[in-house]
Computed example of a mutant assay.
Amino acid sequence: MMENYTYNSFTLHLEGLNVSKESIYPVFILIFLSYLFIIVANVGIVVVVVMEKSLHQPMYLLFGNLSVNDLLGNTIVVPRLLVDLLRPPSERVISYYECVVQAFITHIFGTTSHTALMIMAFDRYVAICYPLRYAVIMTNQMMIKLTVSAWGVAFVLVGILLGLTIRLNRCRTLIESSYCDNASLFKLSCENVSINNIYGLTFTVVLFTGSIGSIVLTYTKITVVCLTSKNKSLNSKALKTCSTHLVVYLIMLISGFIMIILQRFPQYSDYRKLSAILFVIVPSILNPIIYGMQSKEIRTFMSKFFESKKILPS
C-alpha cells in the first residue's frame, strides 16, 4: 500500500475501487452505461420541464432541481472514477485542490438531495391539505425562496464542514476511498480531529433528523386528510404523487445510511467504497424513471415529441 511521503503534500494518491484484472472492463462498461443513462435521462427531464409551459408548476420545477443536483453529483464523481479504473493503483494521483473541490461538491450533492426532497414533501402537503390555497402559497417568489434555501443551507453547512478540514496540516497522502470526501480528507491529518468528528456527526444527525422528521410530519398530515376525506379523486392523486416521492426518498435514505454505517467498519472498506458509488449512481438512475413514469404530463410531452420526430422525415 502506498502511503505518506511528504508533509502537506499537494499530490495525493486515490485508492479507488479494488477490482480484479478480469473484472475491470465489465465494471467499467456497467458504470459507464449507468452514467450515460443518468446524463441522458436527467438532461432530458430538465429540457422537458424548461420547454413545456404546462410543466412550469412547483412540483415539476422542484423535480428539475433534483435532476440538476443528480447531474452535478455524478459528473464530479463518475468520469474520474472511470479513468482511475483503467489506471494501475500507483498512477491514481489527484491534486489536493481537486480533491477538496470533489469533496465539496459530493457533500453538496448529498445534502441537497435531502433538502430538495424536504421541499417537495412540503409542496405535496400544501397541494393535498390546502388545495384551494395552493396557488396563493406556492407562488414563483415562494419557489425561488425554497430553491435558494435548499441549495443555500447545503452550501453553508458543507462550507463549514470542509473549512474545518482545510485548516488541518497533512502528514499522509493516501485517500482511502473511491472518491474524495470530507472524512477521507481529514484522515490525512496527524492533528487532533475531534472538532471535525463532532461537527460531522452533528451535521449528519441534524440533516437526517430534519429530513426524516419533515417527511414523517407532512405524510402523517396528508394521511389524516386522505382518511377523513371522501373525495376519491383527491385520494387517488395523493396516493400517486406521494408514493412516488416516498419511494425516491427511501432509496436515497437507505443508500445514505448504508454508506454512513460502513464508515464505522474499516474491515469492510471495499463494501464502503462500493456503497459510496451506489449512493451517487442508484438514486440518480431511479429518480427520472420513477418520476417520469408516474408523471402523466411528462409522458404526454415525450410521446408528442417522439411522434413529431417520426412525422418530420415524411
Rank of each mutant, 00 (worst) to 15 (best):
I166V: 08
C129M: 03
A183W: 12
G159A: 11
V50Q: 13
T241N: 06
G110E: 00
V280T: 08
I160R: 00
S255A: 13
T173V: 10
K187E: 13
K53Y: 12
F37M: 04
T139P: 04
S34D: 02
F279T: 13
M252W: 10
V225Y: 03
N4Q: 11
R92L: 04
M51G: 01
G200R: 10
E307F: 14
V156H: 04
Y130K: 10
E3K: 07
T202W: 09
M293P: 04
F109Q: 02
A103D: 06
Y219K: 06
V248R: 00
A183L: 13
E52G: 03
R172N: 04
I76M: 11
I119H: 07
W151P: 01
Y97D: 14
Y291E: 09
E15W: 07
S194R: 13
T241H: 12
H107R: 02
R299E: 05
I128Q: 11
D123I: 02
V43W: 13
V248G: 05
I38S: 03
L217P: 00
T139C: 07
A103I: 05
H56E: 04
A121W: 03
I277A: 07
F37I: 10
Y25H: 05
V48H: 05
I281N: 05
N74S: 15
N140K: 14
A238E: 02
I198T: 10
G16P: 01
V46H: 00
K232V: 06
V77R: 08
L132D: 12
M120I: 03
F104S: 03
E22Q: 11
S233R: 13
F28Q: 01
V50R: 11
S20A: 11
